[in-house]
Design a protein around this nucleic acid. Structure first.
Lengths: 228, 228
DNA sequence: TGCGCCAAATTCGTATACAATCTTGTGGAC
DNA sequence: GTCCACAAGATTGTATACGAATTTGGCGCA
């Protein structure tokens, strides 16, 4: 059944990336089961590489591995949601500051392209892709700050935020706050660290307050929580 | 060849933990090759579980996976070393503050036990184990702060710091700065967040300045770097 | 003697096979 | 009719087998 002709880069990374993107774009919902055979069939690889991909995603907290039960798309608790945004509040404003200090014209161009793509996706009604690109904006900014270690942490937190948004976003909230990104890119363009740090700080607060973090998840974690 | 009788908890985690501890205690040096068959033989498991463990450690940046070449104990660059300590400087002082706000008597007791064990190991001449315990102190403090997400990040940074110390520590530096931990525990004991934050900040600076981060690694990354 | 090419050996990457565990469905006893 | 026990099915955990890539050793040739 396997063809094993392609595979330019290492095998399992592709599967993990594809699954991660699907999660970011909310095409895989929190709690969904990821059957190893099924996933393997879809990508034309054996369970061995699927398992490797699932382990990687588990380390990034995008999927949860339950022993002898299988892999499930993670369902961050309210507690975890708060912690993720507290961590972002600790890391990202300072990172935005550094980015503003170092930003070159080419960096700004890349960021602008992300924003444009985000607007386009939003206009095309593809909110999933828009959200994914919105996250990419944050990651790209961390890259500009030239701190790969912190950038990796932020990338993981942004990933998890995508799940948190899928679970806790109250839909009545306005359009995807892309204005904040516009303002940030302007601050970076004129190399204004103070403004960038402050804007990021408030952007994160806005994001957090657009969530509904009352005690129970809006989508039940277990049937007991949902029905009893 | 396998016995497969034991294995109470999941299989690969044990191997990963054992390897991680060996790295923390400097019994595995940066750059050392981790042959899959060899490791599997040692723990009495197949390459499958060894590979899972190595992947996990690679994600924690304790080992580096080179395609078709194998797994090696990671050798953080000077650049990476600086980044790790910048990240710690961003996360740990605030975490120490939170810990000081929440610390209960039982928490203090646990920390004190860590310090005592550290002193004992140091007295017994087992500097590797002392260093490992010294790292555990930081992780335990993050746990007290009750921020598991940030605690996970700190745990990884402490892990990587162990490798950095193995590579860049200038031996002439004084005894393992355990006085800093004593002062910190006192600040936590009297619930003094300001002092805890400040002490942690300076503790990290002291640690960083006890390293020799001039441009080339003190142990060469490749033979080319060492000899050419 | 020194350089380059080819073959053997080693080691990793992936697929498959089998064992252990959990879930689900069925039948009998109360 | 309900509950419990047990068996069948499904899914994960681990081991092994085989193919691919890299390294190493040796041979021939200049």
């Amino acid at each position: 059944m396997q063809v094993m002709v392609e595979h330019s880069g290492g095998g399992s990374g592709k599967v993990a990336d594809s699954l991660a993107t699907a999660i970011h774009e909310h095409r895989l919902s929190p709690g969904m089961k990821l059957n190893e055979d099924e996933v393997g069939e879809i990508y034309g690889v054996s369970r061995t590489v699927v398992r490797a991909a699932l382990q990687q995603l588990a380390h990034e907290r995008l999927v949860e591995l339950k022993r002898n039960r299988g892999a499930f798309v993670a369902q961050p608790s309210v507690r975890e949601a708060r912690e993720v945004f507290e961590a972002r509040a600790l890391l990202e404003p300072r990172t935005a500051r550094s980015a503003a200090e170092r930003a070159k014209a080419t960096d700004i161009k890349v960021l602008q392209k992300h924003i444009d793509a985000e607007h386009a996706a939003l206009h095309a009604g593809d909110t999933g892709r828009a959200l994914h690109l919105s996250g990419m904006f944050h990651i790209e900014m961390a890259r500009i700050a030239d701190q790969t270690t912190i950038a990796d942490f932020i990338a993981q937190l942004v990933s998890r935020s995508s799940l948190i948004i899928a679970l806790y976003w109250q839909r009545r909230t306005a359009l995807c706050e892309s204005h904040a990104h516009d303002a940030l890119i302007k601050a970076l363009g004129r190399n204004d660290p103070d403004a960038a740090e402050e804007l990021m700080k408030h952007h994160l607060v806005d994001l957090l307050t657009s969530l509904d973090l009352r005690d129970q998840p809006s989508v039940a974690k277990s049937l007991k929580d949902a029905l009893k």
